[in-house]
């Protein structure tokens, strides 16, 4: 997901000049891109010390917080866009965080590994958990504690009264709009509150 093309694809979903909150912003590269090329403003939220440092070095404002403690520091509808790129699957309370994303932002954009991607299905059919380029971890050391699929997210969005504005898969830096649940290793959803 650190792939340049994928990052640009995600960035293209964010309107020019938007006020953005990037949850789990990593080294701040996406926010820096959004500031530089799309005139966006905003903040990243990150837990890891090394990433916080890199954000400051890039000139990206970053708030060091544990997302599992919630987003109470952010006001309702205080951002145009809230990003959760490769973050949701690491959170213990993923559903709460999804609701919080919808509370804080007018629009949410979520990207996460799609466990229904066909190579994963093949591995599970053979009786083993998938270990791929996208999911390079063993079952016992993976940070991806919320294992879900493209289709699963559609169900979760409906359950939480989220209107999906756009959804597609990402594979090798390209959009996958035909059978994304089987053909893409990453699921991308753009949504708003109903």
């Amino acid at each position: 997901m650190s792939d340049d093309n994928a990052q640009r694809l995600i960035a293209s979903l964010v309107p020019h000049g938007a006020r953005v909150l990037d949850l789990g912003c990593g080294d701040g590269a996406l926010l820096a891109l959004l500031q530089r090329e799309r005139g966006c403003t905003g903040y990243g939220v990150e837990l890891a010390d090394g990433n916080v440092l890199q954000c400051v070095q890039r000139g990206v404002d970053v708030i060091q917080l544990n997302l599992d403690e919630g987003l109470s520091i952010f006001d309702d509808a205080s951002f145009d866009v809230v990003l959760q790129i490769d973050t949701l699957q690491n959170l213990r309370n993923a559903e709460v965080m999804l609701r919080e994303t919808a509370r804080v932002g007018r629009t949410g954009i979520v990207a996460f590994p799609n466990f229904a991607h066909w190579p994963n299905r093949v591995r599970v059919a053979r009786g083993r958990m998938p270990v791929t380029r996208r999911l390079p971890y063993q079952w016992y050391d993976t940070p991806n504690i919320r294992v879900g699929t493209y289709k699963d997210f559609e169900v979760l969005a409906r359950k939480n009264q989220l209107r999906v504005l756009d959804a597609f898969g990402l594979q090798d830096g390209r959009e996958v709009r035909w059978l994304p649940n089987a053909r893409a290793s990453t699921a991308v959803f753009k949504f708003e509150r109903k």
């Binding site: 010390d49 916080v52 404002d61 970053v62 708030i63 060091q64 917080l65 006001d75 205080s78």
Partner: peptide, 21 residues
């Protein structure tokens, strides 16, 4: 410190916050 950060966020000011363990 988070209270100060929150007040600055509410006012849409530029703020970075490091919480060192």
């Amino acid at each position: 410190s988070r209270e100060i950060v929150k007040a600055l966020l509410d006012n849409r000011r530029n703020v970075s916050y490091a919480e060192i363990d």
